[in-house]
Deep mutational scan, measured.
Amino acid sequence: ELSWTAEAEKMLGKVPFFVRKKVRKNTDNYAREIGEPVVTADVFRKAKEHLG
């Protein structure tokens, strides 16, 4: 699991709890794919757009 900024964690907190774990995993995987060592708010937004 990658490191997350406080802002990205806050955004994740707005995701319904029953899918939060999956969203975190998918976002981590997306960040790795694009070469990001940390999940930022920008990476979170891009993952959301990319993953739907």
Score class of each variant (00 low, 15 high):
1 E>Y: 10
1 E>K: 12
2 L>Y: 05
3 S>M: 14
3 S>L: 14
3 S>Y: 13
4 W>V: 01
4 W>N: 01
5 T>F: 01
6 A>N: 09
6 A>T: 09
6 A>P: 13
7 E>N: 05
7 E>W: 04
10 K>L: 13
10 K>M: 13
10 K>Y: 13
11 M>V: 04
11 M>H: 04
12 L>M: 03
12 L>C: 02
12 L>H: 01
13 G>E: 14
13 G>L: 15
13 G>R: 14
13 G>V: 08
14 K>A: 08
14 K>N: 09
14 K>V: 06
15 V>F: 12
15 V>Y: 13
16 P>K: 05
18 F>N: 13
18 F>H: 14
19 V>C: 15
19 V>E: 15
20 R>N: 03
20 R>L: 04
20 R>P: 01
20 R>E: 03
21 K>P: 12
21 K>A: 15
21 K>T: 12
21 K>W: 14
23 V>I: 10
24 R>P: 00
24 R>C: 03
26 N>I: 15
26 N>A: 15
26 N>G: 09
26 N>Q: 15
27 T>Y: 08
27 T>V: 15
28 D>R: 03
28 D>L: 05
29 N>T: 10
29 N>C: 10
29 N>R: 13
29 N>A: 14
30 Y>H: 03
30 Y>G: 00
30 Y>D: 00
31 A>V: 03
31 A>E: 01
32 R>W: 06
32 R>V: 07
32 R>D: 03
34 I>R: 09
34 I>V: 09
34 I>E: 06
34 I>S: 08
35 G>Y: 04
36 E>L: 07
36 E>G: 02
37 P>K: 14
38 V>T: 07
38 V>D: 03
38 V>C: 08
39 V>I: 09
40 T>G: 03
40 T>A: 02
40 T>H: 03
40 T>K: 02
40 T>S: 06
40 T>M: 01
41 A>S: 07
41 A>H: 04
41 A>I: 08
42 D>G: 05
42 D>S: 07
43 V>C: 04
43 V>Q: 02
44 F>A: 03
44 F>S: 02
45 R>T: 09
45 R>A: 10
46 K>E: 10
46 K>H: 08
46 K>N: 07
47 A>I: 05
47 A>M: 07
47 A>N: 03
47 A>D: 01
48 K>E: 10
49 E>Q: 11
49 E>K: 14
50 H>Q: 09
51 L>E: 07
52 G>V: 12
